[in-house]
Each structure stands twice: as C-alpha cells, then as structure tokens.
Nucleic acid binder design. Structure first.
Lengths: 220, 220
DNA sequence: AATATTTTTTAGTCGAGGCTAAAAATTTAT
DNA sequence: ATAAATTTTTAGCCTCGACTAAAAAATATT
C-alpha cells in the first residue's frame, strides 16, 4: 500500500518517540513533533490504524505495528543516509542537514537509496551518531552511554548526540566537540552536576549536566 | 512567495511546452502533460495568473511571465542536475532517471542545489543533452541540429535527444547510440527518409526518420 | 452563413490533511 | 471521593488540487 508524505511523517515520529520509552505514545507528544494540533493527530491515528500500521485505542495512545515499524524504519534509513550524503559529499555542517533530509526522506526509490548507501560506503551511523537501518530494516547494535553517566578519568570517544537541534549542535561545535573526539571527565561538580572535560587532551572545559546528558560516548 | 509541488509542476510543464513553440500554450496541452483533466488545468491557471506567474486570458491559452519563467528555470535546473547526479554518481542508465528526478526537482534548498552543481563539476547538459540553467537561470547556448537534417558524409557527434521517453532511450542504447558517439550519415533513402549511419566508424546501421529527427548532433 | 465539432470554462463535488470550539474522558489535586 | 485540571476526541469547517457533467466559446465544415 502506498504511503503519503504525511503518513510517512507520522510513522517516523511515532517511531522516534517509541525509541525512548516503552509506554504508548500520547496524542499530544505526536502533535508537538508533527507541528500540528491534537485534533489533527487523532484523525490521522484513526487512519493509520485502519491501514494496519499502528495499534490505536482512543484515549490509550498509539504504538507501531510490525508493518508500521517497517515503514518507519525505511523512512529513518532514508533520512539518515541523506544526512550522511549532505555532510560527507555536499560539505554541509551537522547542524544544517536536518530540514533538507526531512524532504529527501520521502523520495520514493528503493534502487536509489540502495545505490546511495553503497556510494557512501554503507555507513553505520548518521552525522549525529544515530544508527542507520540496513536495507532489511535492521539497526546496527551500538551500545552508547551518556557522558553524564561516566566516572572521572575514564577515556572515551564521542559517538553521537541524543538530541540534534541546530542550537545544541552549534554549541558542541563551538566547544570543539565533534564525532570521534577523545574525551575524559576530569571533575564532576556535585552542586549542579556540571562536569569538567578534557577534549582531545586539551585543557578541561566546563559542560553543563544538560549538555553532558545529550552526548553519547563509548569507552576506551 | 512559496511555490507548492503542484504549482512547480505546472510552471515547468508550461515552460517545456513554450520551448518548442511561440504560440500561447493551450489548456489541453497542459492537461496532457500534467496527467490531469482540462477543467483542473483551468482552475490552476487562474491561480497561477493571480500570483503573477503566468499571463492567462480565458480561451486564449497561457504564457509564463518573467517571474514564472524564473521559477520554471529553477525547477528545470534542479531536475537536470539531479539527473546528472543519478547517472554519473549513482550509476543509473539514462532511461531510468526521469521519474526519480521528477521527485527530486521539488526539494527546496538553494544551498543544496548549488553545492550539487559544484560536486558534479558544473555540467552544461543533463544525460539527454538538455541544457542546464546556471544559478542565475541562464541557459548555456547549445546549437544542435537534428540528425535528420544532416547531409551525407558529414562527421558529427551525438549531443542530445529531443525526446527522453524510456522506450526511445532504450532503443538508442540498443543501437549503441549514446552521448558523444561519432556519427556519419552514409545514405539517405528518399523512399521513407530512413538513413544509414555509421556509429563510431562501425558498419552503417539503418535508422528511421522518426528516430533521426529526435537525435541532436553538432558538426565536426 | 449556419451548423457541427472541438476546446475550454463553469458549477458542483470529493478526499486529504489541516484547523477551532466544545464535549468527553482521564488524570491530578484537594 | 470529589473537584479541578489536563488530555483527547468529536463535530463542523477550510483550503488545495483533483474530478464529472453541463454550458459556453472558438473553430471547422458544409
């Protein structure tokens, strides 16, 4: 069955919200991310349920069905591959690519996206460290930890971000924090949970807990 | 003013029709290319006229205004650049790219299309030999001649096609006719105006007038 | 010049995907 | 346990871009 632009967006957003919780997704949460009103979301959820892409009982929130998740994963795959293209091949910064990828993710051509995947050398993650599903819709296993959960004096590498708003990414760039940076937490301030971090062996800089929470790292 | 997907399509199609005639474009001609009905076209032409993108008087046909042509040229630029990308970078054949480019041409990002242009080395023509407007909307001058208009025993080079339907392109491919092929007309048959052509100095093959008419060449 | 044919426009309708305002259900607070 | 607050749904409406059927204008034919 064909999926419209709007339907793909809803499925993608429900998928994104499902990544960070096991609970059913609320109408309001969806409305916020789709930039629409709750009433419009209710309408669409009924339609998606009718097509078998979500399980939805009124007032109970929504979850993707297996088929819905498959569609969502294919949209996410396209979004993230295009982001890699935009950064690696077109020379955009990591904070500039989201809006463009929001459009490109709806281009309909299995053949194109698989050729693009190959052209980009089958990347495992997008420019923000988010995993890219392969053509079977399988996500690579990435076991990342939040920088805010790390002990002092452990070496680690910046692997991704848990939030990819442009302002956040620009802040990281200003702090010289980019994918692959070597980090070490030097000090954790119990007062406000801010931390002092050395980036690529430089002099430590201060980072708020809020920022540290949204930085994903792997040890070693 | 923002242009919708549908509006861009109409403007592009009116532009294409205007390329091959000086007359005003008829409602029916537009309907055929947009794959809609004449009544729907009438509606849209009124809207486009209101926005100042076409001159339209009922029963009199339609022409692009300067502003309308600017928009059309930007869509054509995007379409043709994406086609180059699909063939040169993604490895598609020249008969496979039209539908995908029809989608990509509506991606909205000046920055992206200019970076793409650079990435592709500022191509002058798309994979069918059609000229690509530069970022100021100026078309490169290409003075091509139809193969059907050529005299016998003149050397020439295949520079483009006047029609890019997949079946036609596949036929050319089967005849070993691709952009850059060196051609020489050996014989013109007055009976059906079919011609006998040597391709890259090989044994001459027969080509119908219909095909020759749609092959664009430059001399020498 | 009158009539037949073709093209184009008008009038009314539809589905997709939004919206607002009001009602209903659920959750939170007293 | 009730009342208050919040969330979600319903009902009704809107715009965009299509459609069909019928009317009107333009063009072609005799």
């Amino acid at each position: 069955m064909a999926t419209s632009f709007a339907e793909e967006n809803y499925l993608k957003i429900i998928y994104r919200l499902s990544e960070s919780t096991l609970e059913d997704i609320s109408t309001n949460a969806v409305a916020e991310l789709t930039q629409t009103k709750a009433a419009s979301v209710t309408d669409m959820l009924r339609k998606l349920a009718e097509k078998g892409w979500v399980n939805y009982q009124k007032y109970q929130g929504v979850r993707l069905t297996e088929e819905g998740e498959k569609i969502a994963l294919s949209v996410v795959r396209k979004h993230r591959l295009w982001e890699v293209f935009l950064v690696d091949k077109m020379g955009f910064n990591w904070d500039e690519v989201h809006e463009i990828a929001e459009q490109l993710e709806h281009i309909e051509s299995e053949a194109l996206i698989n050729k693009l995947d190959e052209f980009l050398d089958f990347p495992k993650t997008d420019p923000h460290g988010d995993p890219i599903p392969n053509k079977e819709g399988i996500l690579p296993e990435l076991s990342y930890v939040h920088l805010s959960d790390l002990k002092e004096n452990k070496a680690c590498v910046l692997m991704g971000v848990a939030k990819d708003s442009a302002v956040f990414l620009q802040l990281l760039t200003r702090l010289n924090l980019s994918l692959g940076a070597k980090l070490m937490v030097k000090e954790i301030n119990s007062f406000d949970r801010s931390i002092s971090v050395s980036i690529n062996d430089s002099e430590p800089v201060f980072i708020s807990h809020e920022v540290a929470k949204n930085i994903l790292i792997k040890l070693g």
